[in-house]
Design a binder for these strands. Sequence first.
DNA 1: ATGGTATTTCCATGAAGATCGAAACAGCAG
DNA 2: CTGCTGTTTCGATCTTCATGGAAATACCAT
Lengths: 105, 105
Amino acid sequence: MKIETAAAQLEALGNTTRLTIYRTLVRAGEGGLAVGKLQLKLDIAGSTLSHHIRKLVEVDLVSQERQATTLICRANYASMNGLIGYLADECCADTSGCAPSDAAA
Amino acid sequence: MKIETAAAQLEALGNTTRLTIYRTLVRAGEGGLAVGKLQLKLDIAGSTLSHHIRKLVEVDLVSQERQATTLICRANYASMNGLIGYLADECCADTSGCAPSDAAA
DNA sequence: ATGGTATTTCCATGAAGATCGAAACAGCAG
DNA sequence: CTGCTGTTTCGATCTTCATGGAAATACCAT
């Protein structure tokens, strides 16, 4: 993964509002959640929500699918795992003081 | 972990310059790296570097230790693992379409 | 086509971030 | 104390971000 990609994804998650949106989507699972449902759940202005979702989609952490009038948003688990792997991978390159897999277990 | 903490750490890593600094420190391992060495390695202005390092220290991703005139910076592996765990933990809460440990392996 | 709901785009604004040169400060050597 | 190297703070500038109201667009039902 290019460092710019990782940084962009981290930056997208590095905002309380967006992290909340993302967490909500992650919890929602494969079924995803419509933009409107998110808006009700999180109580933020439609335009603001739209901006944030767009940013998450741009960095490929979230994907969208149209279903009639509503737009379903889904967390992209593969991307998340890629990002986690990127961070963990850098680790241990030159030391033995780190064991992310063990620590997570 | 509080969401604000996680967001602050993610934001700190969500900048190409800072992510580069952090990666360099992670690779440097337990021995850490002096600010001056980082500056030589990354070729950025001292003041800029200082600001970025301060931010990483503030969110506890990096720790510092004085050694005579030089200041040693070290990646805080525990914090990194905490952050990774936080992201992975949210996952799988409501779905079976995600297995970060397996994917990372 | 008309109307209605869902979502985005436009536009504006206040706040925060990134960068860096210059000056200040910290700690050691002599 | 003086000078030297390493690092931070100050001050300034330019860019980017977060937010939301209003208007526009997308899609379906009738």
